[in-house]
């Protein structure tokens, strides 16, 4: 019953085809998105960190002399137990027995031990620092050390060092005397 009643009213509302065509929606053209290409990276494919470290290495060690002494792969490297003399840019000398060789890039360092006026002195030198003018191996280790780091020689009756600076000077004077004779 209900459906019959509604049907005629719907037929009356329906519009002719021509009239419906007036409500055409405007088609919008899709917005174009341009994807711009990047300029090349200034460093190319190079690693920024290695670029900086290489540059600084060249600046502080142009001949690669210090690297030769510190690098664990090189044959002439400084080993624990060696007696090393370091000259700094202010003109001072320090002679000491190498306790530790720490190879870690630009901050590679040596821990040297000596005795001055009977007082034990440990000094750490950052080898690639511009204040370190030269590094010289005076004497290779006279005995075999089992450890890589010789902290245990401090205060040891037999192993601890004496006044190395004085002994080096003495040895030099002796050599001179011998040569003149």
């Amino acid at each position: 019953m209900l459906a019959r009643l509604i049907r005629p009213s719907l037929a009356a509302v329906r519009l002719p085809a021509m009239q419906m065509a007036t409500f055409k929606t405007i088609k919008r053209e899709p917005k174009t998105v341009n994807i711009y290409e990047r300029h090349p990276r200034r460093l190319g494919t190079e690693n920024a960190l290695t670029h900086v470290t290489d540059k600084l290495m060249k600046q502080f060690d142009p001949q690669g002399v210090k690297m030769e002494l510190m690098n664990p792969k090189s044959a002439d490297r400084i080993k624990p137990g060696d007696i090393v003399q370091i000259k700094t840019t202010d003109g001072s000398l320090f002679t000491g027995l190498t306790m530790v060789v720490d190879f870690r890039g630009l901050s590679s360092n040596l821990l040297l031990r000596s005795k001055i006026t009977k007082i034990g002195i440990d000094r750490r030198f950052k080898i690639f620092s511009p204040t370190v003018e030269s590094v010289k191996i005076i004497r290779r280790a006279t005995q075999k050390y089992t450890a890589e780091r010789l902290y245990y020689i401090r205060g040891h009756k037999r192993l601890d060092v004496g006044d190395l600076e004085a002994s080096v000077k003495k040895a030099a004077a002796k050599r001179k005397k011998f040569l003149f004779k």
């Binding site: 920024a48 470290t53 901050s107």
Partner: peptide, 16 residues
């Protein structure tokens, strides 16, 4: 900027 890592730096007086 990108962080690339850390290094040791020495100034003109050799301070690390």
């Amino acid at each position: 900027a990108f962080k690339r890592g850390m290094i040791s730096w020495y100034d003109e007086n050799g301070v690390h």
